[in-house]
């Protein structure tokens, strides 16, 4: 990491740490959501940006894990130390099943994952004796580990921040490992990786499950923040917005999905304060992103830097 980036990271970290006392509860809540959905977008981008698979079922893992935590904590009074890992486990088990989708590629993969996502939404919506139907499960407490309990949204903000930083660093290590490089190789040319002796389907399956586990973790963070979970968490718009966040920010990067989450959630929050048709505005963001910014913010920044850098070279 060069010095400019280190300074930037330090400034960002300082800003993140100072935010709750500087900006008040509204912004603290909004930024907590940005972290959580950024993590979900990062899990989508693990497949999209690194393996070239466009999954539209990640809301499933997110929601299954959130429901598991909520049901265990609220109905069975299971402590966080068991409920949170159980949530991640449940989401990951679902990913083991849905990972079958890696037998297909391209359009089929996209369509099949949409159908899978819908199945989970349908079960959450219809199986009301267990999931609470449209009302979902409410009154989820803050997480508590023995005597150490979170008691406020500000404390929870710091917990989520720490979780996001740990995940980001872990993700970075992972993506630079031979496994991550293998994924990039598959994205660039699957047939060549096969001829090099890689079992590409097994590789993609492992990436799918890992990505599902990360989405499940985001689901755990979400349910403790949100205090309830209903079928909306499993719905198609959540999956597709997570993909949008990754693309708006810039795929194949770590910071991109978080930037994208900030843009998408910030925009929605702002627009919905004065304009009723905010879903239409989100739709327009989808269209505009595809037509004018397919590389996302990180791509735009790269283009600007390239142009700016060249200009500096020309005029020394």
């Amino acid at each position: 990491m060069d010095r400019g980036r280190a300074v930037l990271a330090a400034v960002a970290l300082a800003a993140a740490l100072a935010l709750p006392s500087a900006a008040g509860p509204f912004w603290t809540g909004l930024v907590t959501q940005m972290y959580i959905f950024g993590l979900l977008a990062l899990s989508v981008d693990l497949l999209l940006g690194h393996a070239g698979l466009f999954s539209l079922t990640h809301a499933s893992f997110f929601a299954v894990s959130a429901y598991t935590v909520a049901i265990l904590q609220v109905r069975y009074a299971v402590p966080t130390a068991l409920a949170a890992p159980a949530g991640i486990l449940a989401g990951t088990l679902l990913a083991l099943l849905f990972g079958l989708a890696v037998r297909t590629r391209g359009v089929y993969f996209i369509l099949i994952t949409i159908a899978f996502g819908y199945v989970v939404w349908g079960v959450a919506h219809r199986w009301s004796s267990f999931t609470g139907g449209d009302n979902g499960v409410t009154n989820v407490p803050f997480p508590a580990l023995g005597a150490a309990a979170i008691t406020s949204h500000t404390q929870y903000y710091y917990l989520v921040l720490a979780a996001v930083i740990v995940c980001g660093l872990g993700y970075r290590v992972f993506m630079r490992s031979p496994f991550g490089l293998g994924l990039r190789g598959i994205k660039a040319s699957e047939s060549r990786m096969q001829s090099l002796g890689f079992r590409t389907s097994a590789h993609l399956y492992a990436a799918f499950v890992l990505s599902g586990a990360l989405a499940s973790f985001a689901g755990v963070l979400y349910v403790y923040y949100n205090k309830f979970v209903n079928p909306v968490a499993a719905s198609f718009p959540v999956s597709v917005e997570a993909a949008l966040m990754a693309i708006v920010g810039g795929t194949g990067t770590i910071i991109g999905p978080f930037l994208g989450a900030a843009v998408v959630l910030g925009l929605r929050n702002w627009v919905s304060s004065f304009f009723e048709l905010h879903a239409a505005v989100m739709g327009a963001v989808f269209i505009a992103t595809v037509l004018w910014a397919p590389q996302g913010l990180v791509g735009i920044a790269g283009r600007l830097r390239a142009r700016f850098g060249k200009a500096k070279e020309r005029t020394p």
Binding site: I110, I247, A279, F286, V290, P294
Partner: peptide, 25 residues
């Protein structure tokens, strides 16, 4: 979008959101 399916999917999902919201209004 040419033949980029990913772009087509995102774009047409966006179109569907716009149509759905306008129809709701």
């Amino acid at each position: 979008t040419g033949e980029n399916h990913l772009a087509q999917v995102l774009l047409t999902v966006g179109v569907a959101f716009v149509i759905g919201d306008v129809a709701l209004a």
